[in-house]
Design a protein around this nucleic acid. Structure first.
Lengths: 149, 149
DNA sequence: ATATTAAAAGACCAAAAGGTCTTTTAATAT
DNA sequence: ATATTAAAAGACCTTTTGGTCTTTTAATAT
């Protein structure tokens, strides 16, 4: 569904938010471990996210990543578009330039509702809402200790 | 939606089928031009499709690509899976190994119906059905002369 | 002040995707 | 037979994606 960078970015952001709700400020080592992503790559991605203004960080002892609480919720779509470029989930399912609403290709009409559903999914879900869902214990967004049953 | 190779492959196959319905047997040069894809790359892809058994070809004068009429319709999904690998449209939307029906992640439940719709789309549409749609004049699957209006 | 900690910056590397081009093989028409 | 045509084979190249590692900068605690 997403490329690796986007995937790690979203998981990282949600993890930071979850920790922030507990009053914590995780660092790269912890984040990478918890979201099950490569350490240095995760570091690079988190830094990019800071540069893009999606979250904040401090260096040195007690440092780490955290969100500006004054900001509004961050929809997944905003992050995805910042990383993958604006054209994500907008084009023709068949990749035709010449295909549009007026002159749809065979698949266009069938794909349109799917594309719309994806757009809705990433627009309605935010880093914060996923973090909340997680704390409610409803899901396993992030790596979690394997339970022995 | 698809990667380039898959995209060119599907367009190429549909183009061959459209021409075959007219009693023709197109070659690489014609196919590449008509589906608006790079010449040599298209050649390579068509050859791969022949090797995979999706269509036939003959060399030399009058040669080109064509389908075995005895075979049944070829669903898009079959082609996609042969090119992109079996895991296409099956995993968790968030790319988590630990996510499954029993322990779904936040997005899993929302993504599941979308993934199912995509699966249905590529299962129900075939190279032949798209070629038929095209001949009915319903769509512009392939590159077509720009109409001056 | 300085030692420690942790992010920032950036060089570097590997694999995959996308694409180009030349040579070889096989079919057909003359 | 042989000239022509067109696919097959495969070497090679470029860009993008994914990933690693070292050095630098900034914050904090002693």
């Amino acid at each position: 569904m997403f490329n690796k960078e986007t995937e790690y970015a979203l998981r990282g952001l949600v993890y930071v938010q979850i920790q922030q709700l507990k009053g914590l400020k995780p660092g790269i080592i912890e984040i990478a471990k918890e979201i099950d992503a490569p350490l240095f790559y995760t570091g690079k991605i988190m830094q990019r996210l800071v540069k893009m203004g999606f979250l904040l960080s401090t260096k040195g002892k007690g440092g780490g990543f955290y969100f500006d609480l004054n900001k509004e919720d961050l929809p997944l779509k905003t992050v995805i578009q910042a990383i993958e470029g604006g054209k994500a989930y907008s084009g023709c399912g068949f990749g035709l330039n010449s295909c549009n609403e007026d002159q749809p290709c065979s698949l266009h009409e069938q794909y349109a509702p799917i594309r719309d559903a994806i757009n809705k999914l990433v627009s309605l879900n935010s880093v914060q809402s996923l973090a909340r869902d997680y704390n409610d214990g409803d899901d396993i967004l992030l790596k979690r200790e394997k339970t022995i049953d």
